[in-house]
Design a binder for these strands. Structure first.
Lengths: 136, 136
DNA sequence: AGTGCTGGTCTCTTTTTGAGACTACAGGCC
DNA sequence: GGCCTGTAGTCTCAAAAAGAGACCAGCACT
C-alpha cells in the first residue's frame, strides 16, 4: 500500500500516479467504496434498510453466508459507521443490527445501483451469453 | 453455489431462502452487482468513462494493479457487456478499451455511489476513528 | 439429562489475489 | 549484430481472503 498510488477524484478527473506524498486514504473511491462493495455488504445493507435484524435472522435470510463472514462483515459495516449494534440483555442475549443515518444515506446511493441491476439484469445476461458463445 | 440460496429482490422485499428451485442467477443484486463491485472494476469503469484507454495506459493510470488482475478485470467487464475491446493491427498491435452503451448506463448509477463516497469520506473516516478508539 | 436457541470464536481447507518472471514481435540506436 | 525500449499479455508461485464446520457458554423447555 506504499509507494506509487493513484488517486481518482470527482467528475471523472483522473490524477496520475504520484511518486510520493499520496496515499490510499486520499482517494474516496477506493477508501469508501471498498467498505461497501464487499461480497456480502450490499446484501446486508439492503436487508437492514428494510428493518433491523438480529444476528440469527440475518443468517437465516442469507443462508449461504458463513457465520464467520457475517460477523466480520457486520463488524466492518459497524466500523465504517453504517450499522449500529445493540445488545439486549435478555435471557438468551440478543444482538440487534440496524442502519445508522449514515448507513441510510449511503443506501440511498447504493439503491440507484441496485435498481439499475434489476432493470438491466437481462441485458447483462445476454451480453454474457454472447461473449461465452464467441469464446467457445 | 447449489442448495439453499436466498433471493433478494426489488423494493426491499426480501425473500426467504428456498430449499430448492432457486439459484444464484435469479437474484439481480448478487448476479449483477458482483460483476461491478470487484476490487478494481469501479476504478477501471471510472477511468474508461472519461475516455477510451489502452492496456498500458490503464496500467500506468492505476499503478498498483497487477497485469494479471488488469487482464482479468477487463475480461470480466467485457464479458458482462460493459466494455468494448478493439484490437488495432498497428506495428506493435494496440488494444483499446472503451465503455459500451450498457457500460455508460451502468456508470450513471455507479456515479451516484462515487459522489456519495466523495461527499461522505470524512464522515466515514471519523466513524472509523471513533470505532477504533473504543476497541483499543 | 438431553435438545435447542442465543451470538459468536477457532481451526482447517479451498479459492482468490498479488508479485514478478517470461513470451513474442517490432523499432531505434550504436 | 547486440541491446534496449515498448506493445499486450501469460505463467508460476507465494500470500491473503473466504468458506466449512467444530466448538463454546448460558439459559429454557421437556
Amino acid at each position: 500500500m506504499d509507494g506509487k498510488i493513484v488517486n481518482l477524484k470527482s467528475k471523472l478527473e483522473i490524477y496520475k500516479a504520484m511518486t510520493d506524498g499520496a496515499n490510499f486514504a486520499d482517494c474516496p473511491v477506493r477508501d469508501v467504496i471498498h467498505g461497501i462493495n464487499g461480497k456480502w455488504s450490499p446484501l446486508l445493507v439492503m436487508a437492514l434498510a428494510e428493518k433491523p435484524y438480529r444476528f440469527g435472522e440475518l443468517r437465516r435470510l442469507v443462508p449461504d453466508i458463513s457465520q464467520r463472514m457475517l460477523t466480520q462483515t457486520l463488524n466492518e459495516l459497524q466500523r465504517d459507521g453504517y450499522v449500529h449494534r445493540e445488545v439486549f440483555p435478555t435471557k438468551p442475549p440478543g444482538v440487534e443490527y440496524s442502519l445508522t443515518d449514515l448507513g441510510r444515506s449511503m443506501f440511498g446511493a447504493l439503491h440507484q445501483l441496485i435498481q439499475w441491476a434489476e432493470l438491466n439484469h437481462d441485458a447483462v445476461r445476454e451480453a454474457r451469453a454472447g461473449f461465452d458463445a464467441t469464446q467457445a
